[in-house]
């Protein structure tokens, strides 16, 4: 299939495995909905609504999908239950497709006049920022990119140590000033060091912060401003990490972080554990920020570039 793009067969299998739980529950539920039915009626739609909401797709997006299917039912007069799977797949793919996706080719990086590509990673507490950075660094290194990490989470106990261990595991340099240091100063140092080393990419870790703490959110602006001084246009990518098992609050997080700083990419983590993954559909539909990476396991390789077609395919194959 053409749209698999750079995905190798192996990668596809990983993703299938990671999402198996989602797929199983999704389909076992749909199967249950359809028992003894030959056509899609209001009862089937009610049940479908329950499935989608229970998968964290969210009330708004669920209603949108249901409305579209209803419209199709009335247009085509009758919709057989055997067609429901296909229709659902089309509609969900369409919702994902409407979002402006970045066209990414693996872990290649854009060039910025000889300066490194700068990624700042933000998010609330416990979503998996540091782990995502470790996995990202590993992927970039595998793609022959020169990586530098910046330990700007100087607040949470032992956060710097955690990133140091990752840097050793992956085998990339890290810039750190220990705990309690000024995060903006760490970011500044990391960028300067990366520039001097001719690195391809710098990834800056930041402390987890709840999106309703204004002071902490403002701090992100300061870190960003300091980076701009070292490399014009930096950070080129501000990656918001969302926990895949978070419910509707994920939308609020995306909104508030976008207000505080220019979020231009999302990473959804822990998608191997939740029986859902539906949150990805909802966020893709409602946020104009593309989902760029997904975390689908605990291994160092279990981070992938999000591919919508691939994702829907894994859900509905």
């Amino acid at each position: 299939m053409a749209f698999f793009g750079w995905f190798s067969k192996e990668k596809k299998e990983d993703l299938d495995k990671g999402l198996e739980k989602t797929k199983q529950s999704f389909f076992s539920k749909i199967a249950r909905v359809l028992v003894g039915k030959s056509k899609v009626d209001s009862e089937v739609l009610d049940n479908l609504e329950e499935i989608l909401i229970s998968s964290d797709v969210g009330v708004e997006t669920t209603l949108k999908i249901i409305e579209r299917i209803e419209a199709r039912v009335s247009r085509d007069k009758v919709l057989g239950t055997d067609e429901l799977n296909n229709v659902l797949r089309e509609e969900i793919a369409a919702l994902l497709e409407e979002n402006n996706a970045l066209n990414l080719n693996g872990f290649d990086l854009p060039k910025h006049d000889g300066n490194p590509h700068v990624i700042m990673v933000v998010g609330v507490n416990g979503v998996g920022k540091t782990t995502t950075i470790g996995k990202l660094a590993h992927q970039f290194k595998k793609a022959n990119q020169k990586v530098v990490l910046g330990a700007a989470d100087t607040f949470r106990a032992a956060a710097v140590d955690q990133l140091i261990i990752w840097s050793e595991r992956v085998g990339v340099p890290i810039v750190q000033q220990g705990m309690g240091a000024d995060p903006a100063s760490v970011a500044f140092d990391a960028l300067q060091s990366a520039k001097a080393q001719n690195a391809d990419v710098v990834i800056i870790d930041t402390a987890g912060r709840l999106h309703n703490k204004i002071n902490l959110m403002n701090e992100l602006g300061k870190i960003k401003r300091v980076m701009e001084k070292v490399i014009p246009g930096a950070p080129h990518e501000i990656l918001l990490v969302l926990d895949g098992s978070t419910g509707q609050n994920a939308f609020e997080q995306a909104k508030q972080f976008s207000l505080a700083t220019d979020i231009n990419a999302l990473a959804i983590t822990k998608l191997d554990g939740t029986a859902k993954g539906g949150v990805v559909i909802g966020i893709s539909d409602q946020m104009k920020i593309p989902v760029k990476y997904i975390g689908i396991g605990e291994g160092i390789d279990d981070l992938q570039i999000f591919d919508k077609n691939q994702f829907v395919d894994s859900l509905f194959s």
Binding site: D56, S245, K276
Partner: peptide, 12 residues
């Protein structure tokens, strides 16, 4: 348990 957890909180 994280208070922001979605529908899956129950299963977990």
């Amino acid at each position: 348990v994280d208070s922001m957890t979605g529908q899956d909180a129950v299963n977990t």
